[in-house]
Simulated assay, not measured.
Amino acid sequence: MGGTMAGDLRVRPATLHDRPAVERLWLMFRHDMSEYQGGLPAADGTFRGERVAAAFTGDGWAPYLLTCGDRLAGFAFVRGLDGPVRVLNSFFVVRGARRGGVGLRAVQEVLRRHPGRWEVAFQRDNTGGAAFWHRVAEKVAPGEWSRIERAVPGRPELPGDLWLSFTVRR
């Protein structure tokens, strides 16, 4: 099923009208990430949402919505658009759309919209994510990317995140 969805993929800027849908996708994303970052939802079933709020401020951020046909497939948050390095702050593809090329195509489109220096972080223990992000780096900057480990700010109990750095050319 995933392979046919990649052909219907659309990446577009998320609008304020999309925010409720993005917030629901955010819950799925945070649920997935809780396996690697720990943390439980709040009493109302939500996870911290400052990044969602920040993504919709417009202050150096750009939120994107991923769709396959008329269905939601995920989202991407870019930050640092007002600085020298863009950061793919959050990237999520729903499980039903994974493994068919949707994520790779979507992230390449997001990256191409903002040429320049990029950084992407992921959790060392997230082996599937690590393999995906290494494929992305090699696809967009063959042989010209680097990886370093950085501590997670304010979370000394967690292993450091791995950060990939590369440049996306016009």
Rank of each mutant, 00 (worst) to 15 (best):
M1G: 14
G2T: 03
G3T: 05
T4H: 10
M5T: 04
M5W: 05
G7K: 01
R10Y: 01
V11K: 01
R12Y: 01
R12F: 00
P13V: 12
A14K: 02
L16T: 01
H17L: 14
D18K: 03
A21Q: 11
L25H: 01
M28E: 09
R30P: 04
D32W: 06
M33V: 10
M33D: 10
S34M: 09
G39L: 02
G45S: 07
F47C: 10
R48L: 15
R48Q: 14
A53E: 13
A55P: 08
T57P: 00
T57C: 03
G58C: 06
D59E: 14
G60L: 10
T67D: 08
T67N: 05
F77H: 13
G80V: 08
G80W: 08
D82E: 14
R86Q: 14
R86G: 09
V87M: 11
L88H: 02
L88W: 00
N89W: 05
S90M: 11
S90T: 05
G96W: 06
G96L: 15
R105D: 13
R117A: 14
V120S: 10
V120W: 00
A121F: 06
A121P: 01
T127R: 11
W133Y: 12
H134D: 08
R135A: 15
V136P: 01
V140P: 13
A141V: 09
S146P: 05
R147M: 15
I148M: 09
P153E: 14
P153C: 10
E157V: 02
P159V: 08
G160Q: 02
D161S: 13
L162A: 12
W163I: 15
R169E: 12
